[in-house]
Design a protein around this nucleic acid. Structure first.
Length: 489
RNA sequence: GUCCCCAUCGUCUAGCGGUCAGGACAGCGGGUUUUCAACCCGCCAACAGGGGUCCGAUUCCCCUUGGGGAUACCA
């Protein structure tokens, strides 16, 4: 039978690192087995649901560049792939369970449940959770309540004793005392929507899911799922619980750890390749032990056995390193297209401007290895787009030089440039070297003021290449402006 | 509280009885150099503790400790 896995997010928030990693691992596993990766929307929490999150889900995965084979937006043979569109299904199956005496109606209201909880907390009892009050009400009472139209939920009957065993592909067999399973969890809510526990099982079964790969936080509900599968007489998919992703403080990764939503990373100038590469290495390794992997390479190398069991801490620094690696891997053409939006946003250029396109392409070799994020581009490149405010005089000064010295250096620079131009950068550089020697100065003495005059900062992309891009005339003008500025100081 | 999962450098990890415990990020030092990067070289740095099993344990078993997760009409 061919492998079918699913990613089943709940559209109650933006796609975040943890979810996307679960999706990626599912995808890698499916593709490594020649199977299918399916998206199912678990929109049964009507309070927290919002359609914008569905859009965010689609946007995120389009940007990341790996996508499902079946899903709400592209259809497939076992749809619908949205649980709210499968609404009737769940009640029918829940009623079946009641008929089989595997589940029961519960009429307890939230007030009673809340009181119960408070009591349990106050008395520090070992057993915490529902007290199974409605499990034992008489048939008459039940029917009367139904006839009165009293709101109700349907709860699963967890066996009072005995054990439930399930198998995990990574963790092996896990045995659970039934007494330790959450007592009689709700399967069908009073609004008629199923809970995760019911819905995921019915849908996984109907959608012929073969492997369920989800985060380890789900382990405690696995025995309960086993009980439901058994009740229906269905075969349970293979389970594989993935190690969790933690923040630097060792707790489940969340907003307070910094960026966690994928669109935040996107906005911050990360490349999808870097994110995928980094995430694939969190809690997993690949036989040849490299660092850089393309998505296709990951597919070819993925193995469940190489999944780690222990949780992994998300390291922003290492992700940054990956981002730099992938930026440098881009061709000049690719990179200039990628930074385009950020330059427009910074007001450095408009959408269509072929002159700027050419200039940027020429500038790519100068900035490529200086970018850690795409968002760094505007600040690094601003001087190429026009004149900026002149920096404080001190910025110009080489060691042991004052403003007048700097002006002298710049005048000397002007002479050399006027004489030799910028056509052959390396020979012009030699001229500067020779001149510095003659003057008994360091090359840096001649070049630091020049760098500041041209780029307005002491830290910049390569100087001569920059001047060449700006053109000799513009470069000389900028130098002249700075000479006047320094003379006036 | 109770239950469950887990445990190698600061972090991500390799290791599947005999290794100088390897790599990557970060950090530190050096090289290159007109700045900053990038790049290259080097250094620092780990088997949580205690019992077993075994000729021999980082590796297998148990306990302790530590960390995480779950205990919802959220997923």
């Amino acid at each position: 039978m061919s492998v079918r896995v699913r990613y089943a997010p709940s559209p109650t928030g933006n796609q975040h690192i943890g979810g996307v990693r679960t999706a990626l691992i599912n995808y890698l596993f499916a593709k490594s087995k020649g199977g299918s990766f399916i998206l199912r929307l678990e929109d049964t929490d009507r309070r927290r649901y919002s359609p914008e999150y569905v859009q965010n889900l689609y946007d995120t995965f389009k940007w990341l560049g790996f996508y499902w084979d079946e899903g709400p937006d592209i259809g497939g043979p076992v749809g619908p792939y949205v649980q709210s569109e499968r609404f009737e299904l769940y009640r029918k199956y829940a009623e079946d369970l009641v008929r089989m005496d595997k589940a029961y109606y519960c009429f307890c209201d939230s007030d009673r449940l809340e009181r119960l909880r408070q009591e349990q907390i106050a008395t520090k009892k070992d057993e915490i959770g529902y007290d199974r009050h409605c499990r034992s009400i008489s048939k008459e009472e039940r029917d009367r309540n139904i006839a009165e139209g009293k709101p109700h939920v349907i709860r699963l009957k967890i066996p009072l004793d005995g054990v439930t065993v399930f198998h995990d592909e990574l963790l092996g067999n896990i045995e659970w005392k039934n007494a330790d399973i959450s007592p009689d969890p709700v399967l069908l809510k009073s609004d008629g929507f199923p809970t995760y526990h019911l819905a995921n099982i019915i849908d996984d079964h109907l959608m012929e899911i073969t492997h369920v790969m989800r985060a380890q936080e789900w382990i405690p509900s696995a025995p309960l799922h086993r009980i439901i599968y058994d009740a229906f007489g269905w075969e349970m998919p293979e389970l594989c619980h993935l190690p969790m992703v933690l923040g630097q403080d060792g707790h489940k990764l969340s907003k307070r750890h910094g960026a966690t939503a994928v669109n935040e990373f996107r906005k911050a100038g990360y490349l999808p390749e870097a994110l995928i590469n980094y995430i694939a290495l969190l809690g997993c390794s690949y036989e040849d032990g490299r660092d850089i992997y393309s998505l296709d390479e990951l597919v070819g190398l993925f193995k469940i056995e190489r999944l780690n069991k222990a949780p992994a801490v998300f390291d922003y620094q290492k992700l940054e390193w990956f981002n730099g690696q992938y930026i440098r891997q881009k061709s000049d053409e690719e990179l200039s297209v990628l930074i385009h939006p950020y330059l427009i946003e910074a007001g450095l250029r408009s959408e269509l401007d072929t002159a700027k396109d050419q200039m940027e392409l020429a500038a790519m070799p100068l900035v490529k290895e200086r970018l850690k994020f795409l968002t760094d581009a505007p600040a690094i490149m601003a001087y190429l787009y026009g004149r900026l405010d002149l920096p404080p005089v001190e910025t110009y000064l080489p060691k042991k030089a004052d403003a007048q010295d700097a002006a002298v250096f710049l005048e000397e620079d002007t002479r050399i440039l006027q004489e030799f131009g910028l056509d052959d950068i390396s020979s012009v550089e030699d001229k500067f070297r020779e001149r510095a020697l003659e003057m008994g100065k360091k090359l840096g003495d001649l070049l630091m003021p020049l760098r500041v005059a041209i780029t307005y900062t002491r830290v910049s992309p390569p100087l001569f290449e920059s001047m060449k891009i700006l053109g000799l005339g513009e470069s000389l003008d900028r130098i002249e402006k700075s000479i006047q500025y320094l003379r006036g100081a």
